[in-house]
């Protein structure tokens, strides 16, 4: 039965991917394109592009898309629930005894080290994305302005929601496009 198959396949993928969305993409390809042949390679690449350009966790985007393409709304729902369920159960269980676990001296020391490891991971992820950024004047300007203003505001202890940065950057990108379109139209009329 296809619905059960979708649910179980996605649960398996949710259970065996460590380290977020990009790790999941390799596993999804092996499972869905090579083994189950639910998607062609081309459809799969389309799906990855869509998941990356829409907000939200890449894994959820991918699961919803694949589920829908395979068997409509119910498929999308089951695929998404499937990919979330293992995480949810595991994390909920951990959250129940995490504080007690942290009260052990050795564990507390380990976590002081881990906190530094996590900062290291975030910084390396940022640097990796920086290297992959297209170097156009607009993107370099937005990147620089975001870093500088966020650092300055946090040092001055001024609160400015990160959500607003995203909205402003999106608006700037779209407005420049509209201005360019208007200019082209103006030149065409001359």
């Amino acid at each position: 039965m296809i619905y059960l198959n979708i649910l179980l396949t996605m649960m398996k993928i949710g259970l065996f991917t460590f380290g977020g969305g990009y790790a999941m993409i390799a596993l999804l390809e092996a499972e869905l394109v090579t083994k189950k042949k639910w998607l062609t390679r081309e459809e799969f690449l389309d799906m990855v592009a869509i998941s990356e350009s829409t907000p939200g966790p890449i894994a959820i985007n991918a699961a919803t898309y694949i589920g829908y393409k395979r068997c409509g709304f119910l498929g999308a729902l089951l695929a998404t629930v499937g990919v979330i369920l293992p995480s949810f159960v595991i994390i909920y269980a951990i959250s129940l005894f995490f504080d007690a676990f942290l009260s052990l001296t050795l564990v507390a020391k380990a976590f002081r080290g881990i906190q530094i490891g996590v900062i290291f991971l975030i910084l390396s992820a940022g640097i990796k994305m920086l290297r992959g950024t297209k170097r156009t004047p607009l993107s370099l300007f937005i990147l620089g302005a975001t870093v500088l203003s966020m650092l300055a505001l946090s040092l001055l202890a001024v609160r400015f929601s990160t959500v607003l940065y995203i909205l402003i950057a999106g608006t700037v990108g779209a407005s420049l496009y509209l201005i360019r379109c208007a200019q082209k139209r103006g030149e065409g009329e001359k």
């Binding site: 975030i122 910084l123 607009l138 993107s139 940065y165 999106g170 608006t171 990108g173 420049l176």
Partner: peptide
């Protein structure tokens, strides 16, 4: 075009967050 504006902003947010935490 909006996504092209958002992408570098996301990278900037991650870098600034990492530097603040550091």
């Amino acid at each position: 075009a909006a996504l092209q504006g958002i992408r570098p902003c996301t990278v900037g947010l991650i870098l600034a967050t990492a530097i603040t935490m550091l």
